[in-house]
Amino acid sequence: MAIGQHHELHRRRRSRNVGVALVLIGFVALIFALSVVKVQQGDLMEGFDHQTRTSVLPIEQPEPQPATEVEQ
């Protein structure tokens, strides 16, 4: 049997490969669509970005400024 000849087995393998490819592409498209909608809706989503998470830091109250006397 010459190499490259097609066999029933190749058809089955191709069907698996194409199937997995389509599933992965579909999954990527789905995550993208989901992300767009979530961002548009203003959902609270925060990725880890090697920085201090500002949303978990205590709210800093501005220091009360001493009243300055108005110079005469």
Binding site: L9, R11, R12, R13, S15, R16, V18, G19, V20
Partner: peptide
């Protein structure tokens, strides 16, 4: 050879 699964079988 043992029959091989296609996508539909999964």
């Amino acid at each position: 050879p043992a029959p091989e699964a296609e996508f539909g079988d999964f």
